[in-house]
Amino acid sequence: MSAVISKKLVDEIAHLANIPLSDKELSSITAAFDETLQVIDNLSEIDTTGIEPAHHTTGLENIMREDVVDNERMFSQEEALSQAKKTNVGYFVVPRILHND
């Protein structure tokens, strides 16, 4: 079967998903994409006329709770920051996304 997906498209998807890829990975993932897309292509064989898409299958309906603050579940600032690689005066440090130049 011929390729149904191009390297260029896979590269675009990697960018959308924020996944850094090497050239070698780009080739192997493109091949894997092809294999997967060919397997899942059979869905069009099933007649779904008049069928509503399933969003939940066990019959439960919306379950709401009161919109109140539960102090017991809150992290202290120290706990919230405890697993971060980079912090500064009680804040998370994030990569720069705006550049001056």
């Binding site: 869905l43 779904t48 069928i51 509503e52 898409p53 399933a54 969003h55 299958t57």
Partner: peptide, 10 residues
């Protein structure tokens, strides 16, 4: 289409 076929399975 996957969610529709999922409903068919249900």
């Amino acid at each position: 289409s996957a969610q529709k076929v999922r409903a068919k399975f249900a």
